[in-house]
Design a protein around this nucleic acid. Structure first.
Lengths: 332, 332
DNA sequence: CTGAAAGCGCTAACAC
DNA sequence: GTGTTAGCGCTTTCAG
């Protein structure tokens, strides 16, 4: 390993000059600079970022705790965050929380140990009692993404309530009265907000929430498939269905297929999250698309700002979603 | 920031003892250990991983250069790699290469600067002339994933040739003679290998490759849609189609839909990469599923092994794929 | 079983 | 415009 000292010696200058030409951090005579650059080229010197971070007190590294990269929604989120961060010269460490408070804590502890300059968390259920307080105590800049938590810090996520209400209202407009909802995993804000949106739409029409029509899909394809199958095979089958995320939508569609129920003939259908193949599917899916790009980019932006200005007031941003009206809702 | 020195002073021991209780790196009297632990708890001390890495010469960090996390295939790959790595106490930095040699070089340079203990690369076209030599020169453990390159280093990827041949043969068996292929981005091994598999299947039946039936989808949904549309609207329309990856499959299906061509009635279809919704689509897609989990886990395993044993002979592993025979191929 | 001390490679005052 | 030097916080010989 060749170090800055080696380069300095070869160029006949001091280490600090080498440092300064490398970082452009003070004026260096162009002749000197050339000698240094030649020495760097000759030795194949490459700077040691670890030493640099230790001395400078900054790692230019950001951590992200998230669950299930397998889910394209999160994949896109990571993608958007990574892009924004790398444009700013930062690098991204990703850790999978498995949507479990314990694993999430392990991930964030490891990020904190590594002295990341900031952390973005898609909080797992129970996060506010485990990981989040520790991050706050470490005074490491923090941004919450995708899900809201009752905590004084920057937060970005999709608009859930209105979107879920719109989806439900639409089904109501088509004439449905018995509308079932497939709800996500308990303990996270999006599940609650989307459910509330559903309930609000019904309430506005004077329809009470019927517990028999609320199925817990736990944000999982398998669970949703099983639960929807049970519901649709039962006596109190609804005439319409709303699924609150992409994974559960697939489960729901599988269940309907297994029961040989047609959409929208036997049941109307609308869902949260759009798919690349939404209009390839027959019938084309009426869905609410989240603006993942914006959510991710905003999270990165908020974090970078906070890294530079610890003091600013925390912001909470909701990114609007857009309804893609196609024909699974049956209102052709 | 409280440091190890602070803890040592409070516990009335030397910094080195604190270090040893923290790392379990030498025997410490249990009374002493307790005092140290108490001091740690009292101060809320958290170790500085950067200083640790500098002193120890290891970062317990691995870098991954990959393209398009948006693509669920890569998302799952990252997921698998991350899991295996975090089980081993490593952390993963991901960088997006955009399948471009220049960006890839930027990503890997930044990883090298950060002194990662190893790097996993899904080589972009041209990688062997830019990023890879630099990594090799730095003598940083390297594993290639997803795509092969003519280089002496560990490599893991899917089996492509046989899978593509099987897919094509199947269409041939159904009786098709004019089979078009939608081919991926140029310059990467999987594109070449899959195309060769296609060509080999034809050759075995004495059918020459017809250039008019080779469409370049560039691994992109949009390009594939455009090209397939052109082909299918032309005079020399094939009776069957093979698509060589997931993104292009979606493009292909969109094109067929736009032309109102039915599968398998108007064209038989088979593809590389399985989707969660493959059997939800009508007709269900006949597809080759790659074992992403295994590929990712293997890459991690190879890398960790090489980090510990620089000397071992490089391995090249091909993970077999499995054919899901459904009905888009039209052989009911 | 424990401590002293020499670095790890760099940054950033501070001095000239 | 350039050099000196004191750290950054930890690991790890080497002694005892």
């Amino acid at each position: 390993m060749t170090t800055m000292g080696d380069v300095a010696r070869l160029a006949g200058v001091s280490p600090s000059t080498v440092s300064h030409v490398l970082n452009g951090t003070r004026k260096v005579d162009s002749a000197t600079r050339s000698r240094v650059e030649a020495a760097i080229a000759e030795t194949g010197y490459r700077r040691n970022g670890v030493a640099r971070s230790l001395a400078a007190g900054r790692t230019h590294t950001v951590g992200l705790s998230i669950s299930a990269l397998t889910n394209p929604y999160f994949g896109s989120l990571v993608h958007a965050v990574e892009r924004a961060l790398s444009d700013a010269g930062y690098v991204l460490i990703v850790g999978d929380s498995h949507d479990d408070a314990e694993s999430e804590k392990r991930v964030t502890d490891s990020l904190l140990d590594r002295q990341v300059d900031g952390i973005i968390v898609a909080p797992a259920p129970g996060s506010h009692r485990r990981a989040l307080p520790v991050i706050a105590a470490a005074r490491t800049p923090l941004v919450l993404i995708d899900r809201a938590v009752d905590l004084e810090c920057d937060q970005v996520g999709p608009e859930n309530f209105d979107s879920a209400r719109t989806l439900t209202e639409h089904l109501l407009d088509v004439g449905h009265r018995r509308i079932a909802v497939v709800r996500g995993i308990a303990g996270i804000s999006s599940t609650a907000e989307r459910f509330d949106g559903y309930a609000a739409a019904l309430a506005a029409r004077g329809i009470p929430v019927d517990d028999d029509l609320v199925v817990d899909g736990e944000s999982s394809t398998e669970v949703a498939e099983r639960q929807v199958h049970a519901l649709m095979a039962s006596a109190h089958r609804p005439s319409a269905l709303v699924s609150m995320n992409n994974a559960m939508t697939i489960g729901t569609l599988k269940a309907l297929r297994r029961l040989d129920l047609s959409i929208p003939g036997d049941v109307a259908f609308a869902c949260f999250d759009d798919f690349e193949w939404s209009d390839l599917f027959e019938p084309k899916l009426t869905a609410v698309a989240q603006d993942v790009e914006t959510i991710g980019a905003t999270a990165a932006r908020l974090l970078l700002r906070r890294i530079d200005h610890q003091g600013d007031a925390p912001q909470r941003i909701r990114v609007p979603s857009t309804l893609h009206h196609r024909n699974s809702c049956g209102c052709a």
